[in-house]
Amino acid sequence: MNYTHRRILLTVLLLISSGAKWSEGARVFTLVNECKTTIWPAITPGENFNGGGLALRSGQSVVFTAPVGWSGRIWGRTGCNFDQAGNGSCQTGACGTALKCSASGEPPATLAEFTLAAMDFYDVSLVDGFNLPITVMPVNGKGGNCSAAGCNTDLRNSCPTELAVMADGKTVACRSACDVFDTDQYCCRGVYGNPVTCQPTYYSKKFKQACPTAYSYAYDDPTSIFTCLEGDYIITFCAIGRKQTVCTYHNHRLVCSGSSGSASLIYKWLVLMLLCMVSLWSCV
Rank of each mutant, 00 (worst) to 15 (best):
I225T: 15
I240R: 07
F121Y: 14
A94E: 13
T97A: 13
M137S: 13
W22D: 15
G59L: 04
T171M: 05
C238S: 07
V180C: 02
L163D: 10
W40T: 07
C178A: 09
W281N: 03
R27N: 11
N194W: 05
W281G: 03
T65G: 03
T115N: 11
S204K: 06
A55Q: 13
I234H: 02
F29I: 15
T248K: 04
V196F: 13
W269E: 15
C35V: 05
S102F: 03
S17M: 11
W70G: 08
G25D: 11
T78V: 01
I39R: 00
Q185M: 15
S125V: 00
F49D: 08
T37K: 10
C90A: 10
Q209M: 12
Y203N: 09
Y233Q: 08
A118R: 12
S147T: 05
F29E: 10
S58P: 02
G86K: 11
I240E: 15
S264P: 00
L272N: 06
M277E: 10
G231C: 15
N50F: 08
A149D: 07
A177R: 07
L155R: 14
N152H: 09
T78W: 01
T236V: 09
A103P: 01
G51A: 06
P67H: 05
G193N: 11
G72T: 02
L116Y: 07
C151P: 06
C188T: 06
I16N: 14
R242C: 04
G72L: 05
T44P: 00
R156W: 03
A149G: 07
G88L: 01
K36Y: 09
V196D: 15
G51E: 08
L280F: 10
L254K: 04
C276V: 05
Y202D: 13
N152E: 14
V139I: 11
Q209C: 06
V246E: 15
G258H: 13
R27E: 13
Q244T: 12
L99S: 06
T78Y: 04
V124A: 08
P41I: 03
S259R: 14
E162P: 00
L9K: 14
Y203V: 01
Q84S: 11
T213M: 04
N131D: 11
D179V: 00
Q209H: 12
I240G: 00
A117V: 03
T248G: 06
G231R: 01
